[in-house]
């Protein structure tokens, strides 16, 4: 863990993704409050448009990276037995990847439809 795991890079990525997630969340809330698309077709058109689609994918990736670094930090702090920590890290990595793939799949299907 301590040999290869990054310090500065993880910290910088966490800061960077936090900024993007924060800004994009503001944008999402603003859209939902003031000009929420009405009906499924309008939703599809909004989500499927290239700018929103790409921004949303970037958002999903940012959230996942941010979550990974955060959870890794918690495990490094509190879970010291290496077997338990490795198992937990593995499970969390797999579930984060699954969530990312699921979100990507949904976005791609919307664009294709």
């Amino acid at each position: 863990m301590s040999r290869k795991a990054s310090g500065l890079k993880a910290w910088a990525i966490q800061r960077l993704t936090a900024i993007y997630v924060g800004l994009f969340t503001l944008y999402l809330v603003a859209v939902l409050l003031f000009s929420a698309p009405e009906g499924y077709e309008a939703w599809k058109a909004w989500i499927g448009g290239p700018p929103v689609s790409v921004a949303l994918l970037l958002f999903v990736v940012s959230v996942l990276m941010h979550a990974w670094i955060g959870v890794r930090d918690v495990l490094i702090d509190y879970v010291h037995p290496i077997a338990i920590r490795a198992t937990l890290l593995g499970l969390i990595a797999l579930s984060l990847i699954a969530m990312g793939l699921w979100a990507a799949q949904a976005l791609i299907l919307v664009r294709l439809a």
């Binding site: 301590s2 795991a5 990054s6 310090g7 702090d77």
Partner: peptide
């Protein structure tokens, strides 16, 4: 010397 997740970056 300070690189890595422990020496410096355990500070939250």
């Amino acid at each position: 010397e300070l690189e890595g997740p422990y020496k410096l970056f355990r500070c939250h």
